[in-house]
Simulated scan of single mutants.
Amino acid sequence: MQAWRVHEFGEPAETFVLDEIAEPSAVDLEGMGMGLPGWIPLQPGTPPFDDWVIMQVTVAGLALPDVTMCRGTYPVPVARPYVSGQEAVGVVIDAAPRRRHLLGRRVAAVTIQPFGSLAPVAVGISTIFEVPDNMSYEDGAGYLIPAHTAYHAVVRRGAVRAGEAVAVTGAAGGLGAAIVQLCVAAGARVIAVVGGEEKMAFCRGLGADAIDHSTGDVAAKIRAANDGQPVQVIVDPVQGEMGALLRAALAPDGRHVLCGHAGGLVPHDPHFYMYNHTLVGATLGSYPRAEMERIHHETNGALSELLAAGRYRPTVTRCVGFDEVTAALTDLAERRTMGRVVVRVSG
């Protein structure tokens, strides 16, 4: 099969190669375990990883980790070469014993390296859910990671409450748009921090007020959008210099929820304690497997209710062909996209 693989470090247009490789099989996985960077050779005394499906991929999601991994700036090092791609929708063609009931079913799954989703056949792990009949392949491929990460950041870790004012960075991106919707669903007043009028309009369509961070004092703009008052929460999938600047708009006792690193990881100003600010980490990758499984099932149930009630929707804005992957990732890296971008792999 042909798959988009990364061999070197650099930008997507330079490092992504369409390689001819063998399809992953159950035999390949027998000698593999699971570590923070993904699939790893089995260590002595460690059982094989046993929560997987092999899926025929129809549509895969594209996201910033595809870019930061190939650049080498992803927080977790990933061994090369690897097939890129973090999530997909497809039909299960093989599975570990505990997942055999999914054979022949259409699922959305997280796919991690080296068996990523930018290939006709990929390996889904742990976070695997059947796609509702009324959800398209495209929406399914752009739903799982943004929605689950956003729910973890907004509800479980950020504890956003009705009546609070919340600033959201990167609000027009795939994760940011999910965060905006869940804050609105919680009854919060949302101020989307984005660059440019088009992205502001996109976020207003999700129920947020919006400001343009490309000019002027961003913290002052946030206060102005909140009737001159600071916000109680910042939900921040960007971090970098932008995240640090926004803390001037955070009220005493406020929470700064860190749930991504699109702007890079920078040291935090140690004076945050002077204002009784709380820095809240929000990532799903560090829990023990049993706890992570419980969290994802709880999250999926809550999100299913919001979907059914029309209070949340996937925000897929663009579907590209398999040969357009590097161009789409370049657009994503240069902040020219909104919502979620997906790629049709087959079918």
Rank of each mutant, 00 (worst) to 15 (best):
V257W: 05
H261Q: 15
P267Q: 09
L265N: 11
A244I: 13
H268G: 10
Y275Q: 14
G263S: 07
M274R: 12
L279Q: 09
D253Y: 14
N276I: 01
P270V: 12
A262M: 07
G260E: 09
P252Y: 04
L258H: 09
G260A: 14
H277I: 04
G254D: 05
V266T: 13
A251V: 07
H256K: 02
V266C: 12
D269H: 11
H261G: 08
V257N: 10
G264P: 06
L245K: 15
L245W: 09
A262I: 03
C259G: 04
G264K: 05
M274Q: 13
R247P: 02
H271Y: 10
P267Y: 07
A248P: 01
G263M: 12
P252F: 11
L250C: 03
Y275N: 13
L265V: 15
M274D: 11
P267F: 09
L246P: 02
R255W: 04
H261P: 00
Y275G: 05
Y273H: 09
D253R: 10
H271F: 11
V257P: 01
G264H: 03
H261C: 15
G254F: 02
G281T: 04
H256R: 01
A244M: 12
P252S: 01
G263A: 05
M274K: 13
L250F: 00
G281Y: 06
P270S: 07
G264F: 02
A244H: 02
H271S: 14
G264R: 07
D253W: 14
F272R: 00
N276Y: 10
V257I: 03
L250N: 00
T278P: 11
R247A: 05
L279W: 03
P270K: 00
T278V: 14
L246R: 06
Y275W: 05
Y275H: 15
L246Y: 05
V266P: 06
D269A: 14
L265R: 02
Y273G: 02
L258E: 14
G264N: 01
L265G: 06
